[in-house]
Design a protein around this nucleic acid. Structure first.
Length: 707
DNA sequence: TCAACTCAGC
């Protein structure tokens, strides 16, 4: 009677294998292992291949972001049920394909509450919350999940009051719905109401605790968050990370690091946050240790480390990391590209920059307006205006950022005329100039000596363009007048400007004083600068040069004592040049570090001979009693920019411009020398200093000796 | 065992 033991056992095995086959497909699918999911599916004997197996396999394709394969399989299914149709809707939603999801939703034979909720969720996800609402009110049956999804959508759009209304209307509220609302209260800083909900919950899960903790942390109440964190019954990676971010975001790095140390597993999000915050906090080595210690890195990990290196002056490391990231198979991504382009720009590494540009083209990132603007700036900073303009021209519709990139670029290269033409084009294209535009335009006028045009534009800023001049614009105007030799008028402008002049304004005035040897005003400016930037030796150095050139050695001596007494920071001068994708750095002095120094020295000697023949006489004021930006300097012949130029003459092929970068402003003597070097060698030399570009050719410089 | 919801970062 009934089933014998053997047949019962057989049936159980069958059930188990049936279950395990579908669940195995689902498990593999959830972890993104599409190959194994398919393998199990294919190996499942036909009689055991139920609708559920097919559904699981379709879901696996969607999870792996292969919607076309999912559809192909769906079309092949021998039978479909509501779960199958719902799987298509939610699968498309997961892949951001809202239109396709809606098409399936509209044609499916039968809809249940899951179908409707999936669709509402889809609209919420793509930000079409009003469409979501329409559907939500249309749906015949709502359950607690539907309500929760809709409330989540409203909260996502910061429609707190509407969300609250809906929450109050909800017939049944479970722990998920309430946790959702707790998050909403936290979002708008209503912590007491959030806490009230939290306290009244009879059952809480880890999500609820974490929501509350994160709410306190984000609203500046880290210590309360920590108290909850200590007593919560169970913690997961999100709880740990939320607590950690509470500390990092209010700058309590010591506690953050202690918590990080105590974490049972160093989860990737927490590591990424530590790398970024430690690094930007100046602890690049510790950040690097966290980075190297990670077993699994994601995109964010690489981006964090690359950005830290970029921001903290480890440019070469940033380039190495970027290359390593790609070797390890991580796809190119937006943030890392932005960082690495900034690195290329600040290093003026044209070779690397062009390589990244090529990658951008292959990955079509170069179509992005913002990326293209950064590319333009990169080429500008690398001294390649032709390529910058080529990219600029490719975009028929430009935004203000792109216009600004080109205007600023021309301006920094001393091409005032071109900058103004681009500015006119911008205005006639209908794009409204902004604060940045006018900094570029006014400094273009300044660099090219267009005083009247500069004044006109400055006046038009307020009246015609409705951009209120800021302190940067006043600094440009002081510079404009100063360069043109109208130093007294520049001083008047400083005195009557509507805001307190800052170091940049006084610096502009000081530059003008140096250029036109206005010692009295220079002394005033230096005094102001000493108050505003007591650590900066630059103004003193400049003033001492001025005294020296007038032969006022006593004043030079007094200044030297002042500097020594104040322990001001003197930045060492560094110049560099890129040869065959390698950046060669030179400091002033004898550069024992560079392996090719002997041939560089020989080249300098030869140049010295040529220059003397051409009538060059070293300008003593730049070296005698030099207080000096380049302390290690033995003689003018060994200033860092000359070393780099000499190296360029040796290594850069004939016919190619020699591009040299310097971290400080170019020394006056070097400037005269390089003009002659360009003449006697027939080479084009492009020097980027801290402020601008100098294009040397045939004995002239594009800055017309004003810089 | 297949379909919808709440917590951390970029």
């Amino acid at each position: 009677m009934g089933y014998g033991y053997a047949s019962l056992r057989c049936c159980m095995i069958q059930v188990r294998s049936l279950c395990s086959s579908t669940s195995a497909i689902s498990r593999y699918g959830r972890s993104g292992d599409i190959d194994n999911a398919r393998k199990v599916f294919d190996e499942t004997p036909l009689p055991q291949r139920t609708i559920a197996s097919w559904n699981a396999m379709v879901a696996a394709y969607f999870q792996a972001h292969k919607p076309r394969d999912a559809l192909f399989l769906f079309d092949q299914m021998p039978q479909r049920n509501t779960v199958s149709w719902n799987g298509m809707v939610s699968g498309y939603v997961k892949n951001g394909m809202i239109a396709e999801a809606r098409k399936v939703f509209d044609v499916m034979p039968e809809r249940n509450v899951v179908s409707w909720t999936s669709m509402v969720r889809g609209y919420v996800q793509v930000g079409m919350v009003e469409e979501a609402e329409r559907l939500f009110w249309e749906m015949p049956d709502k359950n607690v999940v539907s309500w929760t999804v809709m409330i989540g959508g409203l909260l996502k759009e910061s429609r707190f009051e509407d969300a609250k209304k809906l929450f109050d209307m909800m017939p049944v509220k479970d722990v998920v719905a309430i946790t959702n609302m707790i998050g909403g209260f936290c979002q708008v800083g209503r912590l007491d109401e959030a806490r009230e909900l939290f306290d009244t919950l009879p059952m809480r899960n880890v999500f609820t605790w974490t929501t509350m903790i994160s709410g306190y942390a984000k609203n500046g109440r880290v210590d309360v968050a920590r108290k909850l964190f200590e007593v919560m019954p169970e913690k997961n990676e999100v709880s740990w990370t939320a607590m950690l971010m509470g500390y990092t975001q209010c700058g309590r790095m010591r506690e953050a690091f202690e918590l990080f140390d105590a974490m049972p597993v160093k989860w990737v999000v927490a590591c990424n946050e530590m790398i970024m915050k430690l690094g930007l906090d100046g602890e690049v080595n510790r950040a690097r240790m966290v980075f190297e210690g990670m077993k699994e890195k994601d995109e964010g990990t690489w981006n964090a480390m690359i950005k830290v290196c970029e921001r903290k002056g480890f440019e070469l490391e940033a380039l190495d990391l970027f290359a390593r990231m790609q070797r390890e198979g991580v796809a190119l991504n937006y943030p890392s590209l932005i960082s690495v382009l900034s690195v290329c720009a600040s290093l003026a590494s044209l070779d690397h920059g062009r390589q990244v540009h090529a990658q951008l083209v292959r990955s079509e990132f170069d179509q992005d307006l913002y990326v293209a603007s950064i590319l333009i700036t990169m080429y500008v900073k690398c001294g390649d205006l032709v390529r910058a303009k080529r990219i600029f021209n490719r975009f028929p519709f430009k935004d203000v950022v792109m216009w600004n990139a080109m205007i600023t670029g021309y301006s920094q290269h001393g091409l005032g005329e071109e900058a103004l033409i681009v500015f006119c084009d911008m205005c006639s294209s209908g794009v409204q100039p902004d604060v940045v535009t006018f900094i570029g335009v006014l400094s273009a006028c300044s660099y090219s000596g267009k005083v009247e045009e500069g004044f006109e534009i400055f006046e038009a800023m307020k009246c015609n363009y409705l951009v209120e001049p800021g302190i940067e614009h006043y600094a440009c105007m002081v510079d404009l007048l100063g360069r043109a030799g109208r130093v007294d008028e520049a001083m008047e402008l400083v005195e009557k400007m509507p805001m307190e002049p800052d170091a940049i304004v006084w610096g502009a005035l000081l530059g003008a004083c140096r250029m036109h040897l206005k010692l009295d005003l220079a002394e005033v400016a230096v005094e102001k600068l000493a108050k505003l930037e007591p650590q900066n030796a630059g103004p003193y150095v400049l003033l001492s040069h001025m005294y020296a050139s007038r032969g006022r050695w006593k004043d030079v001596e007094v200044l030297r004592k002042k500097i020594n007494a104040r322990s001001v920071i003197k930045f060492p001068g560094i110049s560099w040049i890129e040869v065959e994708k390698k950046v060669h750095m030179f400091t002033g002095g004898d550069n024992k570090g560079h392996p090719e120094l002997p041939i560089i020295a020989k080249m300098l000697e030869r140049l010295g001979g040529f220059l003397r023949e051409a009538g060059y006489c070293p300008d003593g004021s730049f070296v005698l009693h030099d207080v000096d930006e380049e302390e290690k300097t033995h003689s003018l012949g060994y200033h860092s920019e000359k070393l780099a130029v000499a190296y360029g003459l040796l290594k850069v092929p004939e016919g190619m411009p020699i591009r040299v970068m310097k971290n400080l402003r170019v020394c006056g003597d070097c400037h005269s020398a390089i003009k002659l070097i360009a003449k006697v060698t027939g080479r084009e030399i492009i020097l980027r200093d801290a402020n601008r570009f100098h294009h040397f050719k045939d004995g002239y410089c594009s800055c017309k000796d004003f810089w």
